[in-house]
Design a protein around this nucleic acid. Structure first.
Lengths: 313, 313
DNA sequence: CAGCCGTCATACATATATGTATGGTAAGCG
DNA sequence: CGCTTACCATACATATATGTATGACGGCTG
């Protein structure tokens, strides 16, 4: 249990050198000098009894041992940044920074108005929004709060279920005018479908199997969710979209709304051990309320969807 | 992106003071001196612009702000320890330390022989075994490898399914001789059942609802899984047990084996970003093989279970 | 091929952090 | 109530780490 004081400063030096690739660059990044970094790396190598870098005039090349250690240094750095973030408002909950992560779609289409309202009522709190589909960044404390479309299965997380977000297929009005409106699943065969490229993670958890959806069946492929949405809005083809988002655009028309409909659960999560943080709590509750309204709007959009023959507009 | 070098050393000092409760004690723990710790804490307070402790002759009492920051410091410490662990064998994969976490039962009843074999073939590798039912400790890098009885739902983890571990109800032979052998679920009413006290986490994921199992229905209650097992072996009553473990004890007799039977999935998990670590890989594969044999043995024990009227033995 | 730029290593001066010693205060105990 | 003990704060000496300056090596480019 007694840790023999291995100088955390050395870990920071190690990470900087790994990231920057040379002592000099690392020194610049840490606002130190090259000899200092050189000594710190030497000290670390002496302490663990292994060579971490092969020196060269081009910089320091990491050995396999260094590659093994990097993840831990990164984890420390993530925690250190989280510490700073939390400390920024430790004195006063009405000041500081909150870092949020969410999917690209949610980050771009759903959160901005919600965060604007929060910003307005809490001028002192700065907001960072990191669009990402990876879940790990919350666990690694890359973010304080996460909006996710799957249930967080981690017990270390404080998770709140927001609701079910309905998804449907849509197309732009003029696309349907040109190519015709599909009346059945079979009709889709001749249409341009917008889908994923290599990364099907967004489509997991959805029973798309019965629609025999595979990479090859897409006429337009992209792993960028926002790119897919832009393609849909540009009339490039038929694609999936959250009903609440599609409902805002009068030119987007539901396609096969009765045949193809599914939902994604929306969850809000933060670290359990940050429950006591007043600032985070504030942001968490505001997000929960705002997202709940969004989900409710989506359910309405679904309910009040236009007849399949055309939009109400 | 440019972090303005907030001296990781201060975080270590902060954590030590939080844990030890005084500058002096923290100084002892870190092999530093009291004035040094005092200055470091002062520097940290100055940097974040908040008071972290209220000084007193009895020690330092943390303010709410300090409580808020502690989890982050703990996360850093966990990563630092993981760094040390990984570094211990960075030079040579045949040396170093591997830290494993598993449930109490698995730690005490299943792993020892498997780890003994590993120890025998890899003398240089020290093994730490942390019995715990919490899953978070792997995420926080409190351990390198985890054996869990639920599917790890985290994408940041490299998980391998070992197999299904059959569970059944058992009782000691002489208990049944005294109290009679239940022939139906209804018969259980008059029996002494061994179960949990306050923490029902071990029972989650099991459809016990139809057995109307609740805290009050237990005659012997304990949250210690090993205590429950000891009670079962002592003939205190009827309790659940992995078939492979019960099968070793000729005095333990299955109870209502046809009516009550369920399984738990056994999983092995480690961090994805430690995949490259040769030493961990070695331990991981050895554990996977050893546990697979254990699971296979359990399936056999289930299949070759004695008739309900009595044991084969 | 010469000049330029980047890199790391070394030597020396300096600034910084740490350790030692001491004094003051509050709590526990016989 | 006085003794002991543990705690923190301060002043001073020391050790340590850092910065500055310089040299050597290798790649790039005209």
């Amino acid at each position: 249990m007694v840790s023999e004081a291995p100088d955390w400063q050395l870990y920071r030096a190690f990470r900087a050198v790994m990231r920057e690739g040379s002592l000099s660059a690392a020194a610049r990044a840490l606002r130190l000098t090259q000899p200092t970094l050189g000594r710190q790396i030497a000290a670390l190598e002496r302490q663990i009894g292994a060579v971490l870098f092969t020196r060269s005039p081009q910089g320091l090349a990491p050995t396999p041992a260094a590659e093994t250690l990097l993840p831990h240094a990164e984890a420390m750095a993530a925690a250190a940044e989280a510490f700073q973030r939390a400390a920024s408002g430790a004195a006063d909950a009405s000041k500081g920074t909150v870092r949020i992560t969410a999917s690209e779609i949610v980050s771009a289409e759903v959160l901005p108005p919600i965060l604007a309202a929060f910003q307005d009522s809490h001028r002192g709190i700065a907001i960072e929004l990191a669009p990402s589909n990876r879940i790990e960044d919350l666990l690694r404390r890359d973010a304080d709060i996460a909006v996710r479309m799957t249930r967080p299965a981690q017990e270390a997380l404080l998770a709140r279920r927001i609701g079910a977000v309905p998804i449907g297929m849509y197309a732009r009005r003029d696309y349907l005018a040109r190519r015709g409106t599909p009346r059945s699943l079979a009709d889709l065969a001749g249409h341009a479908i917008i889908g994923f490229d290599r990364d099907d993670s967004s489509w997991r958890g959805i029973e798309v199997a019965r629609f025999r959806v595979s990479r090859e069946s897409f006429a337009f492929r992209s792993d960028g969710d926002l790119v897919q949405l832009a393609a849909l809005r540009a009339g490039l083809g038929i694609g999936g979209c959250q009903t609440a988002i599609a409902g805002r655009d009068p030119d987007l028309v539901p396609v096969l709304a009765d045949e193809i409909r599914f939902e994604l659960e929306m969850w809000l999560a933060m670290h359990e051990d940050q429950r006591a943080d007043a600032r985070l709590r504030l942001a968490f509750d505001h997000l929960a309320a705002g997202l709940a309204r969004y989900v409710a709007a989506g359910a309405e959009a679904r309910q009040a969807r236009p007849a399949r023959k055309g939009p109400v507009s």
